[in-house]
Amino acid sequence: MRIRQISVFIENRAGRLETVAKLLGDAGINIRALSLADTSDFGILRLIVNQPEAASELLRREGFTIRLTEVVAVEIPDVPGGLAGVLAILGRGGVNVEYMYAFVEKARGKAVVVFRFENFDAAVRTLEAGSVRLLKEDELLKL
């Protein structure tokens, strides 16, 4: 259930995002999910890709500052209140969410929410105790 995520430091100027996307694309690496947090000067691009090692090596070699982090991907029903249910479980367990992002998976009628927790292990225990379905890395990459 540990999903590897690559975070990339990018300056907030024209073409930087495109550079990263093109590098990965040219290397045949597929982006499964992404989110971008930004300020006026810089941004943090978070990526889940089908070949995390190759992608991090490539980005480092091209001079990007990156960090590999571990996130949790949770599958929830794509219905009103689906996210609230998971958040309630985390809230009751006293688990802090650093950040999260989500995408919808049409074929199975589910939504996938990617969480970054301050305390990974405690968060996983709480989610499992609440019978939330956690995706394994290969499951997520196969979606």
Binding site: S7, F42, R46, T69, R116
Partner: peptide, 15 residues
């Protein structure tokens, strides 16, 4: 310049 040892993927830490 942001190097890997000071980079955090959390915006609040970087800020």
């Amino acid at each position: 310049e942001v190097s890997e040892n000071l980079f955090s993927d959390e915006m609040k830490k970087l800020n």
